[in-house]
């Protein structure tokens, strides 16, 4: 066996020397063109630290791990956006179940809620992204098919009513079920959150959501430093990385500290009602008990925590 392999190798080499040389040249050319072709990845990798690459899932971080992560993210905001921000990890409050209700009789479709969301949550300025879309609907129909989002005239128009739609914080959330890496889950107070540092950006949740509640960061968000909201939450409004999914989180960095969501505070008509349904004296509890509320696409069985109602 060994004798023959000694014999066969030189034969191949003699017969193939020119071809072997050409193969070598070809392989070298191929490898160097590959290096040139892939080079943009190296420029991108400079912005991604090893710590970020190796970071564990939110639920697996110890408190000291999380402190380190937050310090790094605050430094990133300083380096990349020039802004001094404070990121906190707001925990769900005990005995709290959040719910939202919206009075369609008095919503005038001014879209100030969407604008407030845009600013509160550090959305990309150029795309004027927001977690809220306001549909202009024909009076006499609740069919979303006849809704328009890009209306452009003074509001409220006659014969129209307005229906803002944002994340419904479903109890049986299709987006949570489909996520292959558990990057999104429902917290104890009912808010569905995303770990922006764990999401792989497959966008299966965007396909699964029946309410168009999820947004993808198609590029790095651009925000002038003076416009950045410095009060940030780890699972809520901190500046998101490129290539991950985000969504409405009921402004948990506010609401878990006893404040109201930014969209509610911006509403000029008082159409929005937010609170803890476990609190018997809360306004939300009163609305759910006394108004005939409904949810969107109830037939899908998603069990939203976002309710709509009309005054009689």
């Amino acid at each position: 066996m060994s004798e023959e392999s000694k014999h066969s190798l030189p034969v191949i080499n003699n017969g193939m020397s020119r071809r072997t040389l050409l193969k070598g040249v070809g392989a070298t050319l191929g490898a160097s063109s590959f290096a040139i072709a892939i080079a943009p990845i190296a420029q991108w990798a400079k912005d991604t630290s090893v710590d970020e690459f190796l970071q564990q899932h939110y639920k697996e971080l110890s408190s000291s791990d999380l402190d380190q992560v937050i310090t790094r993210l605050e430094q990133d905001a300083k380096d990349k956006y020039g802004a001094d921000v404070t990121i906190r990890d707001h925990q769900p409050l005990p005995d709290v179940q959040f719910a939202y209700a919206l009075n369609l009789s008095i919503c005038i479709g001014c879209r100030r809620c969407a604008e407030a969301c845009h600013q509160e949550n550090n959305h990309d300025r150029a795309t004027s992204n927001s977690y809220i879309r306001v549909l202009e609907m024909d009076k006499g129909s609740l069919n979303l098919e006849h809704g328009k989002v890009n209306y452009d005239h003074p509001v409220p128009a006659d014969d129209k009513f307005y229906m803002p739609v944002q994340c419904q914080q479903c109890e049986n959330a299709p987006c949570v079920n489909v996520c292959p890496v558990e990057a999104t889950w429902q917290e104890e107070d009912g808010i569905v959150v995303v770990d922006y540092n764990w999401c792989i950006g497959c966008r299966y949740c965007e396909a699964a959501c029946p309410y168009h509640a999820r947004r993808f960061n198609w590029k790095k968000p651009e925000i002038p430093k003076q416009e950045i909201n410095p009060k940030q939450g780890y699972l809520s409004n901190r500046i998101r990385p490129q290539g991950v999914v985000e969504k409405c989180h009921f402004c948990l960095h506010r609401t878990r500290q006893g404040q109201l969501p930014a969209c509610l505070e911006a509403c000029p008509t008082g159409a929005r009602v937010f609170g803890n349904v476990l609190d018997p004296d809360s306004e939300i509890r009163w609305v759910l008990e006394n108004k005939r509320v409904f949810v969107l696409k109830e037939e899908l069985g998603t069990k939203p925590r976002f309710f709509y109602f009309f005054d009689e």
Partner: peptide
């Protein structure tokens, strides 16, 4: 084709069983 569709291909390891968090059997993607 799946990898080029990912917004964060650097995080593909999150999808590996045991190493990442594999949302099996609920997610059809797993």
């Amino acid at each position: 084709f799946v990898i080029v569709d990912l917004g964060r291909p650097d995080r593909f390891w999150h999808m590996l069983p045991f190493i990442g968090r594999f949302h099996w059997p609920i997610s059809m993607l797993t």
